[in-house]
Simulated scan of single mutants.
Amino acid sequence: MEILAGEGVALVKVGESRDVVESRVGPPVHPGRRSRAVYDTDPGLVITYQADETVELVEIGYGGEEVFFEGVQLTYRFIDDVVAELAARGHRAVPFDIGFSFEPGFAIFSMSSLSASELDPGAPVDDPRRVVEGVSVAPFEYFREPTEEEIEAYVRGLES
């Protein structure tokens, strides 16, 4: 599955309504109407909806069909290899706690549920290399770290 950086994937795009998405992919695999919905696609899609029921974020997990950007396989590879290949193509990586975001509007991440031995059978048990387990797609602004002022304003809003 090829991602459309900053937009989503062919099946689901940021800004589309839940009704439009579900007319293409069917209902979510869990009951109810929640802000996050999991869809039975290959690979699986997890869609985050805003309060107005439009797509805010498209997430794609590893397994089944792999995920690509400009022909580069993103999922089920060592995260450092993906970052290096994208950097060689001119895409700057911005690190965050579980992965890297990229300015075109996507992020790769690892929840560390896969070990290096999944890709390298000769890897020692304590091999620290992380495997890309998922990709998130949204406009780059979504992945930007908030400023101190934004955090303070958010906290003030919660207090009032």
Rank of each mutant, 00 (worst) to 15 (best):
G61C: 04
D40G: 13
A51H: 11
S113E: 14
E103Y: 06
S136V: 05
E56P: 00
V14P: 01
V14N: 04
E70D: 15
V46N: 11
P31F: 11
P28T: 13
F109N: 07
E7D: 03
R34H: 14
I151S: 02
P27G: 15
P95F: 11
Y142I: 01
E159C: 01
P128G: 14
I98P: 00
E59L: 03
V155H: 01
A123Y: 10
D80L: 07
P28Y: 10
R33G: 08
Y154T: 03
L114D: 11
Y39L: 12
Y154P: 00
V9N: 10
A37P: 02
V20A: 15
Y39S: 14
G26I: 07
R89V: 07
G105D: 04
P121T: 06
E148M: 10
V94G: 07
F140W: 05
Q50H: 13
P121Y: 11
A87H: 07
V135T: 07
F78P: 02
I47M: 14
E65I: 07
G15V: 12
E66V: 02
V131H: 08
S17A: 10
I108D: 11
A116N: 06
A93S: 09
T147S: 15
G8T: 03
E70S: 14
V94W: 05
E7L: 13
E59K: 10
Y154M: 05
V29E: 13
K13V: 05
L86F: 07
S117A: 15
E53F: 13
E66F: 08
E22V: 10
Q50P: 01
L114R: 15
T54W: 01
L57G: 00
L4C: 00
E103Q: 10
F69L: 11
R77L: 12
H91W: 05
A107Y: 09
F69I: 07
D120Y: 04
I3P: 00
V94Y: 14
S101E: 02
G134T: 06
D127G: 10
E159T: 00
R92Y: 04
G90L: 11
V55Y: 06
E56W: 02
V21D: 13
D42G: 08
F106W: 12
A107D: 07
F96N: 03
F100L: 01
A123H: 08
P43W: 14
A138F: 01
R92A: 14
G105A: 09
P146G: 09
V137N: 01
D97G: 12
A10R: 14
P124I: 11
A51R: 13
S110P: 05
V25H: 12
V46Y: 09
Y62T: 02
V25K: 12
D42L: 12
Q50E: 13
P146F: 09
E149T: 07
A37L: 07
D80T: 13
E145C: 05
F96I: 02
G71M: 05
I98T: 11
